[in-house]
Amino acid sequence: MSAEPRVSIHPDSSVLMAAIAARLITKLVDVQDRYGEATVVLTGGTVGIGTLKAVADSAAAPAVNWSKVNFWWGDERFVAADDDDRNTRQAHAALLSHIGVDPERVHEPGSADQFGTPEEAAEDYARRLAEAAAAEHAADTSDDRPDTPRKLPRFDILLLGVGPDAHIASLFPEQAGIREKELTVVGVRNSPKPPPQRISLTLPAINTAAEVWMVVAGEDKAGAVGLALAGANPVQVPAAGPAGRSRTLWLIDENAASRVPEQLIRKSPASA
């Protein structure tokens, strides 16, 4: 079971993104020391992409062996591969094209150029996740590895933004995606936020991650953050649902924190 979420508040969005970048670099180094490689699930949005740019700009970035980092995405817009709305395209511009990544370790969800429907793209993404999990399982020689096949590889860090409506990835309030219990990836139609068609990890898939980091800035997100941390129902408030197996962090700025329950607040980033 995940521990209670920990909230770390930063003065503004610029400080927040720099702090998340520093934390991410440190965590990836630690994970690589343990496993030889690391896996991160990226998010889009202003904070998600801004954090990647802060990583690229950091003098500490070379401490990570980027050729041994596996990259996945929590969701993607089902548009053409060269569409600027693609989270993957923005991530490449901000970070991936500036570091020595192994292209074989960059796992982009399918685009509208490749598949006819978001459901087809979701099935393909789920298949690739399962294949990565099987390869990881086969390479694991530890005595405590599970005997049953896994549908997902090990996610060391999973980043999530939060919308003003409290959506996470492309799981929106009251829609089918946030209710899904069995699938690891779903196709999304009629998204209330354009573009209307998307691909998303499900909440059960998200919650397999060792650490989930909720990265949020802005007064327009304060209501969603407050409801999520107050324990709202994830069907109505999807941001209430994510929980890392070992750690759940809310890394937010002061504007997004205005409705956070006082007992959860941890204002010093160093103390988190």
Rank of each mutant, 00 (worst) to 15 (best):
V40T: 14
A230N: 12
A272P: 01
T141Q: 12
A243Y: 02
S246C: 06
D102R: 05
S97R: 15
I206V: 15
L158A: 13
G48L: 01
S14E: 13
V47H: 07
G163S: 11
R245Y: 01
P194D: 08
V31W: 01
V79K: 09
E262V: 14
R128G: 04
A132H: 00
L227K: 15
P242Y: 03
P11F: 07
P109W: 08
L171Q: 11
A166V: 08
P234I: 04
H10D: 02
G163T: 10
V31A: 09
K181L: 13
L42H: 07
P103F: 08
Q263D: 14
D84H: 12
S14F: 06
T26P: 00
V215G: 02
Y35N: 14
A166K: 03
G231E: 12
A135Y: 00
E131R: 11
D83S: 15
R23V: 04
A121S: 14
T208K: 11
E131P: 00
G177C: 00
L28Q: 05
G161P: 12
I157M: 13
Q263A: 15
A217N: 06
L201K: 00
A134G: 05
R89G: 05
A243E: 07
V216N: 05
I157Q: 12
A21I: 06
V237F: 07
S200L: 08
A133F: 07
G50I: 06
A18P: 00
S111N: 10
P118V: 06
D156P: 11
F172A: 01
Q175F: 07
G45D: 06
D165V: 08
E120V: 04
D147S: 15
V40L: 13
S2C: 09
P149G: 09
A19M: 04
V55R: 01
S97Y: 05
T248I: 10
P173A: 04
P62G: 05
R105G: 07
G45M: 08
F115I: 12
V216Y: 04
V79S: 06
R247F: 09
F155K: 09
Q90F: 00
L227M: 14
V215F: 01
L129V: 07
P153Y: 02
V40M: 12
R259A: 14
G36W: 13
G226P: 10
R6Q: 14
G100K: 14
R266K: 12
I9A: 03
I25P: 08
Q197W: 11
A139I: 05
A169Y: 00
G177E: 01
Q32D: 07
D57E: 15
W66I: 11
R259E: 14
P242C: 10
G44S: 06
S246F: 09
A63I: 01
G50L: 06
D57R: 02
T26L: 10
P192W: 11
I157V: 15
E254C: 02
E76V: 11
S8E: 10
E131F: 00
V212M: 06
S58C: 05
I99Q: 14
V31Q: 09
G226E: 03
A126G: 11
D83Q: 08
G100F: 05
I252P: 02
A133H: 05
